[in-house]
Design a protein around this nucleic acid. Sequence first.
DNA 1: TATTGTTATACTCTATAACTATA
DNA 2: TATAGTTATAGAGTATAACAATA
Lengths: 164, 164
Amino acid sequence: MTNDMEALDRSREGPDILHSAGFLLSTAGRLARERFERAIAPLGLRARHFGVLLALATHGPAPQGEVADEAWMDKSTMVAVVDDLERWGLVERRRSAQDRRMYELVINERGREKLAEALEVVARSEDEWLGPLSPEERELLRGLLARLLYAPGGLLRGREGGEE
Amino acid sequence: MTNDMEALDRSREGPDILHSAGFLLSTAGRLARERFERAIAPLGLRARHFGVLLALATHGPAPQGEVADEAWMDKSTMVAVVDDLERWGLVERRRSAQDRRMYELVINERGREKLAEALEVVARSEDEWLGPLSPEERELLRGLLARLLYAPGGLLRGREGGEE
DNA sequence: TATTGTTATACTCTATAACTATA
DNA sequence: TATAGTTATAGAGTATAACAATA
């Protein structure tokens, strides 16, 4: 109890910027990302692999460059990621019949199973670090963040800030 | 009934990790960090310089290694940052009289002015991308994030996750 | 000539360890 | 011997540009 109060007090100390939305957001975001990486590491995956598997499972087979864009990755970075996934037997490269420059990237059954495992593990991890918030507060947080990102003038849609 | 609708939506849109707190948080955090860097760039500062100036302005003169810890920086990384700040005439290295291995790192008047400029510019930038949220909602967001970080079991204090 | 995927390269960031000068 | 700051180095990550095959 005393510790709780001290921690909360510490977060209120000092110049305003330490409790500014920007500082809190970027700090929390970095730590959330680290938790995510740590959660899926035992499955032998990194965040990029996860992102590609998710994109393929969600939007079906797609050319390599398109998936790279969707996962906010450069096409050159993508090569090694798909190399990994293919070597691990989770994804297949199939030359497109219509345009032989392209691949159709296909997630297979093992890939879907791996993704399902990862989703479960990540959900458990989130549930852990979201502990301080009640279900209603978590929902509130998700709503605020979604608007912050996607509403006009927000982080993803303000000026030239958009990446995708 | 709301739950039925949600389940239905989820079945149409695929995995809902894209609206999970973790994904939203790490995405928003990364973008907030980018906005921050972009906001202070015209002043010739990077985030690390800002962090050091802020630490020195807040906690007064301190040895270099101590400030490094405070800014979550390695002491070796810190060297170049202080080199910059000294070259720009914002901070001074003074050998400690008690222990001549140590410096006393001191922010000077120019440093304080630069920091004040930076704080103003950053506040304006935040005000811009926080546009989608009302003042009450911003306050709500800050509170949720602070608890997420500092409450027991949260991102900064769960298990061995703590860096500081 | 333009585009897909690939490779090579360079640049940033950071962490590690060795070194110096003090203690 | 231990510590503060420094330097050198190596690793990860990522972005850029050149390249081959195909359109």
